[in-house]
């Protein structure tokens, strides 16, 4: 055994120790166990790789894209098929589709992250408060949630965008407003299962305020189911954003948003298929990535699959 091997071995023993000696070790140990469970799932790793690739592409778009995403060569490069100069071909304005997809990844990430940041905390807050408070608060909060759930997501988003005006920021807002209710439902269900447990009672008997109990003791238990659900929903969010873009209500030209790109490629779909196919494939791969990642996270984080 080499020294490096021994080092790795003892590091693992340190992480998996049953008697951690510090807060840090306990936390890292827990994370390591979750990672081991996650990484045992090949498909989940593929999902993770796809998402990491998306992040890298978005970060390095300026380096990776050979052409400008918005300014094309109308004279010489209209609707060229895929080739050495333009890997995915060009569109009707002579813009390089590969470059547009690379830059488009930024918009996709922008939408996905903003929606997650807005919708998940709202859902978490509404759900845990409703679940813990019981009575009138619960009834009112959950009826509001029901109203939002009663409309199809895209139709509601359409209504919001129509009211707020087209544009990618408003599309994000509309999607966020329509996607929190399921999170509230999940958080409430989770809260109901733990609120009567002895460990929550024990904190009540410490004299903790309801606010503190919800924030510090109940929310951490809801977060893993929520992360899983949000990750699995990412694909849906991307598709909704693309749908809004496709309908002309999301990103406005010349923004290289993938949905809008498909919309503009629709006119030549029979003769110049690559204009619509390339962004379509990008959406497909990224959605798949999020779905695989979500499945893997479910195995790694699921509080019901043992306490480890």
């Amino acid at each position: 055994m080499t020294a490096a091997d021994a080092g790795a071995l003892s590091r693992r023993a340190w992480l998996l120790s049953d008697r951690p000696a510090s807060r840090l070790q306990a936390r890292l140990g827990r994370a390591y166990v979750a990672w081991r469970r996650f990484s045992a799932n090949r498909l989940a790793l593929i999902g993770l790789l796809i998402i990491i690739a998306l992040l890298v592409v978005a970060a390095l778009a300026d380096v990776l894209a050979p052409y400008s995403p918005t300014v094309g060569d109308l004279k010489n490069a209209r609707l060229l098929p895929p080739g050495a100069a333009h890997w995915f071909g060009t569109d009707d304005l002579g813009r390089d589709i590969y470059s547009r997809i690379v830059y488009g990844s930024r918009w996709t990430l922008y939408v996905v992250i903003l929606v997650a940041i807005i919708a998940a905390p709202i859902g978490l807050l509404v759900g845990t408060i409703a679940g813990y408070a019981d009575g009138w608060t619960d009834t009112i909060l959950m009826r509001i949630t029901d109203i939002f759930l009663a409309f199809p997501k895209l139709v509601l988003a359409l209504a919001f965008v129509a009211a707020l005006g087209p544009g990618i920021e408003n599309a994000v807002l509309a999607i966020a407003i329509t996607s929190w209710p399921p999170y509230a439902r999940i958080a409430r269900a989770e809260t109901l299962t733990v609120r009567n447990s002895d460990y929550i009672k024990a904190v009540q008997l410490m004299g903790a305020s309801p606010f503190r109990i919800v924030l510090r003791h109940i929310m951490p238990l809801c977060i893993s189911s929520l992360i899983i659900r949000v990750t699995l929903d990412m694909a849906g969010i991307i598709l909704t954003a693309a749908g809004l873009g496709f309908l002309g209500l999301g990103a406005q030209p010349p923004l290289p948003e993938w949905g809008a790109m498909i919309a503009s490629g629709r006119r030549f779909i029979l003769d110049q298929w690559w204009v619509a196919a390339a962004p379509g494939a990008a959406i497909l791969i990224v959605s798949l990535g999020f779905n695989l990642l979500g499945d893997g996270l479910r195995d790694a984080l699921d509080p019901r699959s043992g306490d480890q």
Binding site: P20, R23, A26, S197, D198, Y199, K201, A202, V203, M206, G207, A208, R212, R216, H217, P220, L221, P303, D307
Partner: peptide, 20 residues
């Protein structure tokens, strides 16, 4: 059932002290 599944012993014991 009476110990929070996501908290270390340290955290469990700190909580009452923090509350008071």
């Amino acid at each position: 059932g009476s110990l929070h599944p996501r908290q270390t012993v340290d955290r469990l014991l700190q909580e009452p002290l923090a509350i008071h």
